[in-house]
Design a protein around this nucleic acid. Structure first.
Lengths: 221, 221
DNA sequence: AAGACTTTGTGAAGGCATGCACAAAATCGC
DNA sequence: GCGATTTTGTGCATGCCTTCACAAAGTCTT
């Protein structure tokens, strides 16, 4: 059982497990069963066990998983031992909210740059950080950085090209529309209106179906 | 070919196609081939054709798809002929940004309620709308409504219970963590930190893989 | 009117993910 | 110590989604 090739579906769930583990770690719980953790995470226990098996064998039969060890193993696998630097580009409403979002810091990320091209915004302070223009950003980037694009749609491609040019290989894109990037660059997209439209479809169909989970995150009550 | 049971994966892409069609409609383009539209939407043409085939036969062989007809058909299928009412609950940074987000209005949604429980926030105006408390919201809801939960994590479950009680059957949840809802209620989740963590995993693995698409939205350039 | 050309719609195949069911492995009680 | 009990790890079956490849169906040219 090599630790290479973890299925994409599993990778997408590891953050969920990590999050589910966090309160247990804090509460000092030492051991958790796949059944319990699956309930917290909103998945099936068999799937959880299979997912964890890709990381190696970190459970004890008849007992369960060592909470702390499992959390640290997932953290390691996700590459979150050291925080990642994040640049938020586009300081509109959304960029503003993202800059102030505390969830990044608590989950392994450090927002290091707030970038905008509007001279009226550059130099102002948002959530305790000074907004810089793209040139200043480009001049100060040294390490690996994840770019978050929260510009208006028309500017998104241009920004993507520019950050790729800087060596960025991971982009989280909030602007609707498709980004063209080189093959070595990964893009994840969050489109709020799309999410609502999917909900609308099912709500309209209504009655028959329902309970469709995005990532298998939801549990019934 | 009944028009029931459209696969989930297809439903999730219909909004993308609709968005890709929009500029074509605006530009007055009359016909588009699956190849062209697939490029715009960032998918493969074969998959696009299969997806569209679930809606019925709206293309003409040797020609392509009538842009306007296709757009209106997808709009109809998604249930977007009439705008849906949306309530944003939790007027923190994110709720604030969502309230001001223009993308909802242009894509079939009308934000009708901004809800918060902080008395200091209730009554204030955000993006031209007055913030109400939950009681006022509950008292004025009549029609179908989609609830967007942008509260802190600890309040999310409580809010979910409350809106379900009001008859809401569709929830878009920005709060990390699992929501327990009755089986007739659908929840979609957007977790920003999770998205970054997935990026971090691939960036760390680096080199070998990359170009992993969230929804198959990205195109290479 | 017929043949060349284009593009859709779809059957079939392959790959991936999920869920089941159970053997393997550990603890606990006596 | 040994059998009962618990819980993991995983082989297998099932179902879903994607991709391929091509026949069907239309347009265009001559």
């Amino acid at each position: 059982m090599t630790r290479r090739d973890i299925p994409d579906a599993t990778v997408a769930r590891l953050p969920v497990y990590l999050r589910a583990l966090h309160p247990l770690v804090t509460a000092g719980v030492e051991v958790v069963s796949s059944e319990e953790l699956a309930t917290i995470a909103g998945v099936r226990s068999a799937g959880l066990r299979k997912d964890l098996s890709y990381l190696g064998s970190y459970g004890v039969r008849g007992v369960g998983y060592d909470v702390e060890r499992l959390a640290s193993e997932i953290t390691r696998q996700l590459g979150l031992q050291h925080p990642w630097s994040v640049a938020i580009i586009g300081m509109g409403n959304l960029g503003h909210a993202l800059a102030a979002y505390s969830g990044f810091a608590t989950r392994g990320f450090r927002v290091q740059w707030l970038v905008d091209r509007d001279p009226a915004v550059v130099g102002t302070e948002i959530a305790g950080m000074r907004v810089v223009d793209f040139e200043q950003f480009a001049a100060t980037v040294t390490e690996q950085v994840i770019a978050v694009i929260s510009t208006p749609p028309v500017a998104a491609q241009e920004v993507a090209d520019a950050v790729v040019e800087l060596g960025v290989r991971s982009i989280l894109n909030f602007a609707p529309g498709v980004l063209s990037v080189p093959s070595h660059t990964q893009v994840r997209k969050v489109d709020l209106a799309t999410e609502l439209q999917i909900l609308a479809f099912h709500e309209q169909r209504g009655k028959d179906d329902a309970r469709i989970a995005t990532d298998g995150i939801e549990a019934s009550g």
